[in-house]
Design a protein around this nucleic acid. Sequence first.
DNA 1: ACAATACTGTTGCAAAAGCAACAAACAAAA
DNA 2: TTTTGTTTGTTGCTTTTGCAACAGTATTGT
Lengths: 216, 216
Amino acid sequence: MEIQNTELFKGISCEECQKMLSCFKSESRSYTAGELICNYADTEKYVGIVTHGSLNIIRTDENGNNSLLEHLGENGIFGKYIAYAAAAGDGIYVECDTPCEIVFIGSEHITKRCSNACECHSKVVENLFDIVTKKSVELSRHLYVLSSRTTRDKLLSYFRLMCEQYNNTEIALPFSTTALAEYLCVDRSAMTRELKKLKSEGIISMDKRKVTLNEK
Amino acid sequence: MEIQNTELFKGISCEECQKMLSCFKSESRSYTAGELICNYADTEKYVGIVTHGSLNIIRTDENGNNSLLEHLGENGIFGKYIAYAAAAGDGIYVECDTPCEIVFIGSEHITKRCSNACECHSKVVENLFDIVTKKSVELSRHLYVLSSRTTRDKLLSYFRLMCEQYNNTEIALPFSTTALAEYLCVDRSAMTRELKKLKSEGIISMDKRKVTLNEK
DNA sequence: ACAATACTGTTGCAAAAGCAACAAACAAAA
DNA sequence: TTTTGTTTGTTGCTTTTGCAACAGTATTGT
């Protein structure tokens, strides 16, 4: 995707866009599937914005359990300034999912207005507002799912949210069932057990990554 | 707090501030402890910003379990536009914690620039950016805590985050232990049991709502 | 000062979840 | 095409969690 077509630079002309990018001293980098983009602890001074592809933000706790904190697609944003600030000891990693391109911008450029003639700075802040708002909505959806006590209710909360979002009783999981277990922060085998129950009770149907909710 | 001293109107003069408030057709309301501020489902078209006191955002699931999704203090923001959009069926409520004052602003005023002479609109968007960013950080912290598999690890993750944030080994819980259980989305009795274990193992000490982490 | 309400601590029991380990299916790479 | 690695399904066993119920302690409002 061309940089001026990203949500971040929406409404800004091509020339102005280039001017800002150099003013911001931003850097763009590409990654291949599975590649480690960075350790979250290192994102102190910049934010990364996904202009292409997707990535995962993963926590590995002291017991070796992986949790999928976020799955960011195009226009997703990450960095300690935006989320997981002071996220204690254990490791949070940013990992490339599908081949992706990331624009890195020093966070000081976002907060402080630059001395150069960047009239469109406030337009960028407006765009960033939308991007961060979407992140906040996504985080709260995840939180909502995790607030369910049991694995069964986590699954149902997740499926219901997805169905509501796409206004359909059938949804396609955006990731593997292994990753789903990590997103729900539960044991994979226990989750599979629960999925089997839900299927046998006729509440859901599954075919590969297609899930149908048969409620109501 | 005077409205022009809130984070939302930071950097905007008193007169301009009043002009904007009427331009935004914003409304301010006060609530007493325990009072229901609104049902989250009703926040489709506006955002609420806490200018004084604190509130809780609570989910009650189909089994009657309460989860404390968020505890918002001054400059906290809520509304479907910002978080929990399409949060499925079950009830999310906004409830006054300590007596509070909320400014309600129609969300269309945030996204669209008004036709009136509100030059400081982009300043407000910049301020909102900071407010939403803080919310996003808070949500991700909560998510981080909930990503721990066991009650024990949830407690420890939470304590460690708090200690890191206040740069101290002793912290004061911002709410009751009952509310803590709801924040961690676990059973209160099971949590109490686990707290007892942590105390007997010497990992933590507790005195009322003061918790000391004795690690390392 | 009293009543009403909320919070805390406790326990036995049942249900759910986590763990470990393995086999089968699938996908990607050599 | 074979090999390698990842994903999925499964199951016994153990531990943790949730639930229900109750009593004692704070706290709040009248």
